[in-house]
Design a protein around this nucleic acid. Structure first.
Lengths: 203, 203
DNA sequence: AATATTAATTTTGTATACAAAATATTTAAA
DNA sequence: TTTAAATATTTTGTATACAAAATTAATATT
């Protein structure tokens, strides 16, 4: 089957999404179709579609860049903890040897890399575990949450959370030893700590 | 804050969604913007938007009415079981007395009502439990799954699944007695049975 | 000065036109 | 009769116009 290009839509979707994710469009900003269209160099139609799409993905709410409250974050993490906890348990059972190697590599980079590298490694760590479920529906649901969580990534990178990498290492080990229950619990605690850290920064 | 109407969009969105859910647009059908627009009596623009929305909600995939495979259903239910299982546990802790009454009423109707009433009561049963989480994000995620699952509701109603109401009753009782762990396990088993029944019918 | 009304402006929702892309159909070649 | 190429048709993507709705600014009234 042939892929369709939709270049104007792609361009505007990626532009707006990236502007939101890297903070150039701060949380709470009102998005105006015509302004964006002119800025991007396309008509309103694809911009409109992009906004709607991002609305469905949770990055935009009522034409504004989403601005999650503490409660919103807690709700989000309640679901995230359930799903990624399951994923960790699943990884302990199904993760392939080569992926386990990459998981360890992520931990290593977490200790020795620069800010940019650490951020990428952290994302990769969680992604490897989520992918191990081989459940596209679950992967998609989790990805949707991450796009909101990533709104905070700059803030979180500046204030490095203590023990983050240690926790990753523990999870990694539990997975390597096929201890599903333990991996699940450790992941839950890990994410809970992430949440509290996020909320702490929010104030 | 003032609600906006968007009458053409609302009209076309609801029209298309309902046509899909009640089977008048069978699974796999290709949707053509212009045909639908004329049928509904609006222009292509709101129809387009409706299709995109329904695509995000999972009822449409690549311009066609979604047609889930057995694997798709299993993946979907894996997530559903996690989330609704959690919701049942949560209900055992937090469900208000009046909602428990309604839950019991759903069980009663499940035994004595006609097909239409039973269907509504079943939906309500699950909804009450899901709502007890008071987590809009979780509620929304689950709702999204239900819209796909409801594609099968006609088929499922014709072939009444045995023990369905008994299981509801057991869950209801566990919740009433604040036995969270039990309620969670019963809900998981209940949904697993639902899944197997769905898949059995699919063939 | 604060509040309510009205008017001006911005922004969005919808319809429409047209070109690009995808699909279906016909014709030609093996 | 099958396969390939060319053509015609349908369908989608994008731009644009215009009216409805929402927002903002200005005016009048207390």
């Amino acid at each position: 089957m042939i892929k369709k290009s939709s270049i104007a839509f792609k361009k505007s979707y990626e532009y707006i999404r990236d502007q939101i994710l890297n903070g150039e469009l701060p949380r709470g900003t009102k998005l105006i179709e015509e302004k964006l269209a002119e800025e991007i160099g396309v008509s309103r139609t694809p911009v409109r579609e992009s906004i709607r799409r991002l609305e469905q993905e949770g990055l935009i709410q009522q034409k504004r860049v989403v601005n999650p409250s503490e409660t919103d974050l807690r709700n989000l993490f309640q679901v995230r903890i359930l799903l990624e906890g399951f994923a960790a348990r699943s990884a302990a059972q199904f993760l392939r040897e080569e992926d386990l190697g990459e998981l360890r590599e992520c931990v290593r980079i977490g200790r020795s890399g620069n800010a940019e590298e650490i951020m990428t490694a952290n994302e990769r760590f969680h992604d490897l575990i989520v992918q191990s479920t081989h459940n596209p529906f679950m992967i998609d649901t989790i990805a949707r949450m991450h796009s909101i969580i990533y709104l905070f990534r700059k803030t979180v990178v500046y204030h490095k959370r203590p023990f983050l990498i240690d926790e990753h290492e523990q999870i990694c080990q539990a997975i390597a030893e096929h201890q599903g229950e333990l991996a699940e619990r450790l992941m839950q605690e890990h994410l809970q700590a992430d949440l509290e850290f996020c909320i702490h920064l929010l104030k």
